[in-house]
Nucleic acid binder design. Structure first.
Length: 633
RNA sequence: GCCGAUGUGGCUCAAUUGGUAGAGCAGCUGACUUGUAAUCAGCAGGUUGGGGGUUCGAGUCCCUUCAUCGGCUCCA
């Protein structure tokens, strides 16, 4: 007999060799029906796993991330089974679960939408057939032979690349068997609610030098109601697409004449400038100075910085008087030149130099995506030059700024710390000091973070901030990177208390990341309903008829004098029509003025569809100003 | 860059098997002077992304090119 400690803290005795699903069944029938995987001493295991010794066991259902993964992984096998039934010549590649669904890669002509429907039908059949899913293992040579005979060359390659000691397992469901580490459900029956969502190309093993395969994306849930909710959320996200809203609200647009180069329209510029003013405000408060460096600098500079050698493919270059120049893809070399233009004492450090630098990067056409991925963008960059002892405090300062900014907008975000990669420059000691500085700063601030071992830049470790948008997509925005390399390459110095020259450590950091991308994310996050302090037009004055235009003008002037961004609608239209348009423009405050208001010096206030009633104009101004000053959401 | 899809007035979309490019909204003109999400009427607006081809005839079929969309890879 063995002792199994369960999630609720209780322990139960089972015969040695009892499987995870047996234990679930022992606990309750319902649990046995919903089990997707087991968590055995902290490791995710297949539900068929026999328990051989005393352990801690947690039963995972679809409600857990691991359970979802197992469930959807089974869905991906059902997809592959359906494809093999309909198109037996298709070769299988891989088919994992993703954060919100699953996919399977096939070596075959791309599927048409009609074929996708056929596949979905066949999948429904497979589910209905209630096929038992069995697991078995094979020694390496037999596994290879098995897949070779099946003609599955990609699987053979996968097996050959498995580590020496790997257990090579297969999952069989009726006429379909796949190489797979699992875990899986025990029958196809449970996968009741699924949908194939799209077809796309994907490289074998994610390498662009490899063959392009055909990938089918899908998602699966235990209940059709949940699937429906998911699909509705996707629809809602589409409505929030910043490209659509940006156009509707007259914020920005794209033209064929400048692929990847956004055009900001008057209202978009107001939004952008408001964001920039806010940025300046907090950075001034935090002791930053602002610089502005040239857009075009000569080749020698880029060779010194290493960009000419390592980043040239992404740089636009030009020739001036027979010499090579490059349009800057990054601001750091310019910042370094500014630092070096005067001498620095240790007493001056840290030097915090901000720059709203417009950079150009030659991105490949297929990767452009609205404002999220462009060829020209404004980085809210800053470079901090400091002594090693100052690392920790400086990092903390930057993290505070980033947290303040993200929290202001109500963003969720997570933090990742990337450490020294294999191929890197600098001494062990430098890396140690720097990485510890980052780590201690995060620990001191009580931040939780993921550590990506070996994922840092070759010149130093970094902290990345990932925002979550309304689609659940994450965007890397803020980043803090330590750099020993550039100060070295540029022979950067400060004079220490010992009257000797020392090399400062440099931080590169951005908060928004790219103002353009950040505006894209904000647009989707708020679905165009920006907070009043940020929105391009804060109030619209809507006269009931021409008779009240004089009063409306007076209201507009008073609001303008108070610094409120206001517009008026003097067209000969009904009030309902004017309100509709102003609402569609997402203007937060609509001020209807007619006979009553003109007489009493009031405005009838409507905000985001809510009727706030008539208010004295000065009261309204006081209230909206308070809202703006507090930057309320 | 790669795989797939798409491209029709400012916007959103129509147009049997190839057979006269239409509508709504927006715009302009006029009437209405309006009380909380679309007043009515009239007018104007298009070499169907560009180029080439097949055909008596191309928005529709073919080639090519550009852009966009969904992915892959890369990334702020």
């Amino acid at each position: 007999m063995i002792n199994v400690k369960l999630k609720d803290g209780t322990s139960k005795q089972y015969e040695k060799g009892t499987t995870v699903i047996d234990i679930a069944r022992d606990i309750s029938e319902g649990l046995a029906r919903n089990i997707c995987a087991g968590l055995l001493n902290g490791d995710v295991v297949d539900i068929r796993t026999p328990i051989l010794e005393d352990c801690e066991l947690n039963i995972l259902t679809f409600d857990s991330p691991e359970g979802k993964r197992a469930f959807r992984h089974t869905a991906s096998h059902i997809l592959a089974q359906a494809v093999k039934r309909l198109y037996p010549q298709t070769k299988l590649a891989i088919g994992p679960s993703t954060d919100d669904g699953f996919y399977y890669d096939f070596d075959r002509e791309p599927f048409t939408l009609d074929e996708l429907e056929e596949i979905e039908k066949e999948m429904k059949k497979v589910v209905k057939e209630n096929i038992k899913i069995e697991r078995f293992e094979l020694p390496r040579d037999e596994a290879v032979k098995f897949m070779e005979e099946a003609g599955e060359t990609y699987k053979v390659e996968l097996i050959n690349d498995l580590p020496e000691d790997a257990v090579i397992s297969f999952y069989k469901q009726g006429d379909f068997t796949d190489l797979c580490a699992g875990p899986h459900l025990t029958s196809t029956k449970a996968v009741k609610a699924f949908k194939l969502t799209s077809v796309a190309g994907a490289y074998w093993r994610g390498n662009e030098k490899n063959k392009m395969l055909t990938r089918i994306y899908g998602t699966a849930f235990t209940k059709s109601e949940d699937l429906k909710l998911y699909l509705e959320r996707i629809e809602e996200a589409k409505k929030r697409d910043h490209r659509k809203i940006g156009k509707e609200l007259g914020l920005f647009t794209f033209m064929d004449e400048g692929p990847g180069f956004p055009f900001f329209l008057p209202k978009g510029v107001v939004l952008k400038n408001t964001l920039i003013n806010f940025w300046r405000e907090i950075h001034e408060k935090e002791g930053y100075v602002e610089i502005s460096t040239p857009m075009i600098l000569n080749r020698q500079l880029w060779e010194t910085s290493g960009h000419w050698g390592h980043y040239k493919n992404n740089m636009y270059t030009t020739v001036i008087d027979d010499d090579d120049f490059a349009i800057k893809p990054m601001n750091c070399p310019g910042g370094l030149l500014v630092y070096k233009s005067t001498q620095h004492s240790y007493r001056d450090l840290p030097v915090r130099m901000g720059e709203l630098g417009v950079v150009h990067r030659c991105e490949k056409s297929g990767q452009l995506h609205g404002l999220m991925r462009v060829r020209c963008f404004t980085q809210d960059d800053a470079h901090i030059f400091m002594t090693p002892e100052q690392i920790k405090d400086e990092i903390k300062g930057v993290v505070r700024i980033i947290d303040e900014v993200y929290s202001l907008f109500g963003f969720k975000y997570h933090v990742e710390l990337s450490t020294r990669p294999e191929d890197s420059m600098g001494s062990d000691e430098d890396w140690e000091v720097a990485t510890n500085g980052l780590r201690e700063a995060l620990d001191d601030l009580g931040m939780t973070y993921v550590v990506n071992e070996g994922d840092g830049a070759f010149y130093g470790p970094k902290i990345d901030f990932h925002l979550e948008d309304c689609l659940g997509r994450t965007w890397q925005c803020g980043t803090i990177q330590l750099d020993f390399q550039l100060p070295l390459r540029f022979n950067t110095e400060y004079v220490g208390a010992d009257n000797e020259k020392h090399r400062p450590i440099m931080i590169h950091r951005v908060v928004f990341g790219s103002i353009e991308r950040f505006i894209g994310i904000l647009t989707e996050h708020f679905a165009g309903n920006f907070p009043t302090w940020l929105t391009p037009v804060q109030a619209a004055v809507l006269p009931i008829s021409e008779k009240f235009h004089d009063y409306a003008e007076k209201v507009v002037e008073t609001l303008k004098d108070s610094g409120i961004r206001v517009q008026a609608d003097y067209r000969a239209e009904k009030i309902g029509y004017k309100i509709r348009e102003a609402r569609l423009q997402r203007i937060p405050y609509l001020l209807v003025v007619g006979e009553k208001e003109a007489e009493s010096g009031e405005v009838a206030v409507k905000s985001r569809g809510e009727d706030l009633g008539a208010k004295k104009l000065d009261v309204f101004i006081k209230e909206i100003k308070e809202e703006i000053d507090s930057k309320a959401r």
